[in-house]
């Protein structure tokens, strides 16, 4: 009996350290390793400087009172109201029309001209913000009719000088921008997450609860 008590004492001493080690180990696993392992990271085929292109002094045609209007210059709404998304090469070539004469002086542009413009090859962009196939998201209903800023969902993407790597969830295939960038799941900005609840939250807040019906956003 004595012996047993003694040994019990022995193990209790510092035993909490094991608990804490396990606890901390899990924290590291859950907060650091897991997010790194869950998401792949893929560079975009080339860089694109949004900040530069949003400058009306630099780019002809990027005008408008609001940032949204500027965005829409390249990320167009088509005549039938659908959203064109990432512009095609054709749009880029409205300005970058001659592969021989770059408009700026960056090596990226030269690379772009030789690899894509000269070859008339589409740039295989990776889309940060693509919703899954079951979702129908009309930009026009939000941007034009609902007067929602691009920033509300896309944050300061338009101010970036460098394109971040595209990161996709290895399990679901969703982009990290849909949900995962703030791994805690907490939401401080409207653009932190783009899940169904986030859509519904905004609809409710704006008094459009009727738009939370299933068939408004699902197809």
């Amino acid at each position: 009996m004595e012996n047993q008590a003694h040994s019990s004492d022995q193990s209790t001493k510092g035993g909490w350290l094991f608990f804490i080690a396990g606890f901390i180990g899990s924290l590291i696993l859950g907060w650091v390793i897991f997010p790194m392992a869950l998401y792949s990271s893929q560079p975009q085929p080339m860089n694109f400087n949004h900040a530069l292109h949003m400058n009306p002094d630099k780019v002809d045609g990027i005008e408008g009172d609001t940032e949204t209007e500027k965005c829409l210059f390249c990320h167009q709404l088509r005549d039938d109201g659908t959203f064109a998304g990432i512009p095609r090469l054709e749009k880029c070539m409205e300005c970058h029309d001659d592969p021989e004469s770059p408009l700026g002086s960056t090596p990226e542009e030269k690379d772009f001209l030789t690899r894509y413009v000269a070859e008339e090859k589409e740039i295989p962009w990776l889309s940060y913000y693509r919703q899954p196939d079951c979702v129908y998201f009309p930009h026009i209903a939000h941007v034009k009719m609902g007067k929602v800023d691009c920033r509300t969902c896309h944050g300061d993407h338009g101010k970036l000088e460098d394109l971040p790597a595209y990161r996709a969830n290895r399990l679901t295939g969703y982009s990290i921008k849909i949900w995962g960038e703030r791994i805690s799941g907490l939401k401080f900005n409207t653009w932190d997450r783009m899940k169904m609840d986030d859509c519904a939250e905004c609809h409710t807040k704006k008094g459009h609860e009727e738009n939370n019906a299933c068939f408004v956003c699902h197809k």
Binding site: S11, G15, W16, F18, F19, I20, A21, G22, F23, I24, G25, S26, L27, L29, G30, W31, F34, P35, L38, P132, N169, L171, T172, Y174, G180, I183, S184, G185
Partner: peptide, 30 residues
């Protein structure tokens, strides 16, 4: 005994990380 404590610590810890919650959600999406 200590190993169990380690595990209990680990299990307790994992619940205050996003791992189980995110994984559950992602599996459903998967």
């Amino acid at each position: 005994r200590n190993f169990i404590k380690f595990l209990v610590g680990g299990v307790a810890g994992i619940h205050v990380t996003p791992l189980p919650w995110k994984l559950t959600d992602d599996s459903a999406i998967w």
